[in-house]
C-alpha cells in the first residue's frame, strides 16, 4: 500500500504527460499544465533544499561527535554555512552586501580553482600514463594531437591545413561514432523511462515496503 499509491500517481500522471506531448487539447495544455502542474511544481520545489542542509549538517555534527579523522575542519563547514545564511537572511541578497561579497570572493574563486587543479593532474597523466601500447591507442593519440594543435593559433603556423583536417575529424568520424553511441544511449534511456512509466522499474522509490 505504501508503494502502490505513489506508483499509481507516476503511472496515471505519466500517461497524462504522454497525452500532453501529443495533443494541444485545452484540458491538457491549460487545465493540466498551466493551472495545475506549473504552480504545484513551483510550490513543492523549495523544500528539497532543506534535505541537503539536513543531511550535510548531520554528517558533519556526527563527525565532530565521533572525533572522526579531520573532525576539526567540520567547524569550518558550519562557520561558512551559518555566516552565509545569516548574512543572506539579515543583510539581504543584493549586490554589495556581505552575502554576495562572501559568495563572489570566497566561494567563486575556490570552486573555480578546485576545477583548475585538473589541468595539473592531466599534464602529469599525459607524461606518465598515455602510452601508444596498441594500434588503437596510437590512433586515439594521433587524433587527439591533431585536434589539440588545430585548436590553438599556433596550429595555423605549423600548417594551414591543420584546421581543415581537425574539422574533418570532428565532422565525420567523430560525428559518426558519437551518433552511434548516442542512439544506443537514447534507446537505453527511453527504455528506462518506459519501465518507470509502466511501474516495472521502482528503485527510485527506495527500499522497504
Amino acid at each position: 500500500m505504501k508503494k502502490t499509491i505513489p506508483l499509481l500517481i507516476v503511472i496515471v500522471g505519466g500517461i497524462i504527460w504522454v497525452l500532453w506531448a501529443f495533443s494541444p487539447h485545452y484540458l491538457l495544455q491549460e487545465v493540466f499544465y498551466n493551472k495545475f502542474y506549473l504552480p504545484w511544481s513551483y510550490a513543492s520545489a523549495p523544500f528539497a533544499m532543506l534535505l541537503g542542509v539536513m543531511s550535510l549538517s548531520m554528517m558533519h555534527s556526527n563527525k565532530i561527535k565521533r572525533r572522526a579523522p579531520k573532525w576539526q575542519y567540520s567547524y569550518f563547514f558550519f562557520a561558512g554555512f551559518i555566516i552565509t545564511a545569516l548574512a543572506g537572511f539579515i543583510g539581504g541578497t543584493q549586490k554589495g552586501g556581505v552575502f554576495m561579497w562572501m559568495f563572489e570572493n570566497m566561494q567563486m574563486p575556490m570552486s573555480a580553482t578546485m576545477f583548475s587543479l585538473l589541468a595539473f593532474y592531466m599534464a602529469s597523466a599525459a607524461y606518465k600514463a598515455f602510452r601508444a601500447r596498441s594500434p588503437e591507442a596510437t590512433v586515439l593519440l594521433v587524433a587527439a594531437i591533431v585536434v589539440m594543435l588545430a585548436q590553438v593559433p599556433l596550429g595555423m603556423k605549423i600548417s594551414k591545413h591543420l584546421p581543415t583536417i581537425s574539422q574533418w575529424i570532428l565532422d565525420v568520424p567523430n560525428l559518426a561514432s558519437k551518433r552511434g553511441i548516442m542512439l544506443g544511449v537514447g534507446l537505453g534511456s527511453v527504455a528506462t523511462s518506459l519501465k518507470i512509466l509502466l511501474g516495472i522499474e521502482r528503485s527510485y522509490l527506495g527500499g522497504g515496503d
Binding site: A123, A126, Y127, F130, R131, L141, I145, L149
Partner: peptide
Amino acid sequence: IILFIVLGN
C-alpha cells in the same frame, strides 16, 4: 602536453 606525451612514450 604534446611534448609530455611524446617524451613519456
